[in-house]
Design a protein around this nucleic acid. Structure first.
Length: 283
DNA sequence: ATGACATGATAAA
DNA sequence: TTATCCTGTCATA
């Protein structure tokens, strides 16, 4: 679930369900018990996200910092008859009830981080992150300056959160495909124009991801309906070109999609559409 | 029942 | 570069 769009969507859901309300906080699983007890009864000012980091602002300089990691989940139930018993390993439960608004609760599981920070510490976390395509009005220049100075593969740079915040393994693979970029090209080999196009695409794709809660990256002519093919059945449900499609035909050219390990993550790409760059020929 | 794997990141070696 | 953490799901036995 969790690339940047998931966290931004979550921030919106949590704000809508809980902002301005007195919260009951608990850690049924126990790992956040002391903090939850200390925060119990606090009022949520707002939840916001920066890249893959989520922050719950509880006032008086108290900030709960959440990072879902690879398989964390934060399930928000905005309108329920009553708050049920927790199921499984619930690290943090938020609940609000009895104030005239709908009874709501949210359960956090499997997170890599759930800690109580000061406002200053929250700022330090944010300061380590590169530009986030999901923050309106963000200037991508600092990200691209780093990319263009690097001989690392562009596929590695896109996943580096200090370069660009919020892009994960799915958006990385898909945006490279959409721009016909060989994942192994170095950052330094890319033009500013090309990178601006990638940024604009990420803004559009990820904004759509926040809206729908899924990652859809195929153009209208490559949807299942347009191509008369079966829709993807998958845990995250979006329609994509290459992510986890290794061994299957590329939706554009029919070449088998490849996969390889890169920086400890699985990379997917079409070796034909994303052909290695050769020296430009003079006409 | 068991194991591999997952949209992530860190610390140690 | 490897090991480790967090939890759930799916495939295999």
């Amino acid at each position: 679930m969790p690339e940047g769009h998931t966290l931004h969507r979550l921030a919106g859901e949590l704000t809508a369900a809980f902002a301005g309300r007195r919260l009951a906080l608990a850690s049924p699983q126990g790992r956040f018990e002391a903090e939850a007890a200390a925060l119990d009864g606090a009022v949520l000012e707002e939840a916001h996200a920066h890249g893959k980091h989520l922050f719950l602002e509880l006032g008086a300089g108290r900030v709960v910092h959440v990072h879902l990691g690879l398989y964390g989940r934060f399930d928000v139930h905005a309108e329920v008859a009553q708050v049920p018993e927790p199921v499984g390993q619930v690290r943090l439960r938020l609940a609000a009830a009895g104030d005239g608004r709908p009874t709501a609760y949210a359960d956090l599981r499997g997170a890599t981080a759930c800690t109580l920070l000061t406002a200053q510490q929250r700022d330090a976390v944010v300061a380590r992150l590169g530009p986030d395509p999901l923050r309106p009005g963000t200037d991508p220049a600092p990200a691209w300056e780093r990319v263009r100075r690097s001989r690392a593969p562009v596929a590695a740079l896109l996943m580096d959160q200090s370069v660009l915040a919020g892009v994960g393994n799915v958006y990385r693979a898909e945006v490279l495909f959409r721009h016909r970029l060989d994942p192994y090209r170095t950052g330094a080999s890319l033009t500013a124009r090309r990178l601006d196009a990638v940024w604009d695409d990420l803004v559009a794709l990820m904004t759509e991801g926040v809206r729908t809660g899924r990652i859809d990256t195929v153009r209208p002519e490559h949807t299942p309906e347009a191509m008369g093919r079966a829709p993807r059945v998958d845990d995250h449900g979006g329609e994509v070109y290459v992510y986890r499609r290794d061994g299957r035909p590329c939706l554009v050219c029919g070449t088998r999609v490849r996969k390889a390990e890169l920086v400890q993550r699985t990379l997917f790409w079409c070796p034909r559409c994303q052909r290695p760059h050769t020296t430009r020929r003079v006409q």
